[in-house]
């Protein structure tokens, strides 16, 4: 597989703030790659480094094998869907979409035809003569997408593109983006702080924290085998067991993660705990459990168990569900 984007020890420091700190990264061609992390973790800065809006203070970025240092954004075959869409307010939807072609010097009739075709692809046929201010949030989002895709970029960068949409629309767009990416075969690099979005859409996910990548892997790897407490907490609300408890259980001396659905209620053996809260989440009931000094979350099938707040229960899990973490962070 060709590497679309490669980061080699890339840092971007703003004064004493290390927005991106010695990041190594390789994104394959045709991949749907998500950068996940809390705000201020450096994921958006990484995106801006690829687009060319920021320059690394150290390290090298390569785009399809050629160094990107000193190459201005307008000379990179990379396009961006901005968080606030950044549609040109003085231009019609048609002219917005055709902007890149106009700059390239494509003739008026041809770029009009191309813009209409692209608008059709994002299901906005007939909206060409409107101004961006006359569109809804979801429609603007799709214009921004069309405006980027019409240039046939090698890499499409999406900066929290669904952040401003409401839940239903967001779910529809997630599907639509995935289908679009599969059919076009373009490399998508997608920035989000929503772990559900990252896990459900991406082929691979990089989890960012404080300017560094904490873990890179497929959604399954990230979800089931978080390598640090930060990833476990941020990605899946996993339970994190402290090292001394893990040692007590005889599973080695390190922090370990335990998925809520791996915990089951047992009638004998296991560990005593008290149910301190319950909440209904569709197919299951989510329990908050107090076991000694630690708080655990568990997902329990409510057809098999009655759970009352205050009830004393015994809980257990399979030893292989306990994932030891190298625990690089505090």
């Amino acid at each position: 597989m060709t590497t679309a984007v490669r980061f080699d020890g890339v840092s971007r420091h703003f004064g004493s703030v290390k927005a991106v700190d010695a990041v190594d990264l390789a994104i394959g061609e045709g991949e749907f790659f998500a950068m996940l992390g809390p705000s201020g973790s450096g994921k958006t800065t990484c995106l801006r480094l690829i687009a060319g809006f920021e320059q690394p203070t150290a390290g090298e970025i390569e785009i399809f094998g050629s160094p990107a240092g000193g190459v201005p954004p307008y000379r990179r075959n990379v396009n961006t869907v901005f968080q606030d869409y950044a549609l040109f307010p003085h231009l019609s939807v048609m002219d917005n979409v055709a902007y890149g072609l106009m700059i390239k010097g494509v003739g008026k009739a041809e770029r009009r035809r191309a813009a209409e075709a692209t608008l059709e692809m994002v299901r906005l046929t007939g909206y060409g003569s409107r101004k961006p201010s006359q569109l809804s949030g979801g429609q603007r989002q799709r214009v921004a997408l069309a405006r980027a895709l019409i240039n046939k970029p090698k890499v499409l960068l999406l900066d929290e593109p669904l952040g401003a949409l409401d839940l239903k629309l967001r779910e529809d767009m997630q599907e639509e983006l995935k289908v679009l990416q599969r059919s076009l075969g373009i490399t998508f690099v997608f920035v989000t702080h929503d772990q559900g979005e990252a896990l459900s859409m991406a082929d691979r996910v990089a989890v960012f924290d404080q300017g560094k990548i904490r873990q890179i892997g497929t959604p399954q790897e990230i979800y089931q085998q978080p390598t640090s407490a930060f990833v476990a907490n941020f990605v899946g609300s996993s339970n994190v067991l402290p090292a001394d408890l893990v040692a007590q259980l005889g599973s080695g001396h390190a922090q370990a993660s335990l998925r809520p659905e791996a915990i089951r209620l047992v009638s004998a053996g296991g560990h005593p705990a008290e149910i301190i809260a319950t909440s209904f989440v569709g197919a299951a009931t989510k329990l908050a459990l107090q076991m000694g000094d630690i708080r655990l979350h568990a997902l329990i099938d409510h057809r098999t168990h009655d759970c009352e707040v205050g009830q004393q229960v015994l809980i257990d899990w399979n030893p292989e569900d306990l994932h030891l973490m190298d625990g690089g962070d505090e």
Partner: peptide
Amino acid sequence: SLIEASMDLGA
């Protein structure tokens, strides 16, 4: 971001 968007689109 309008200026960035324009440069991003090749201008």
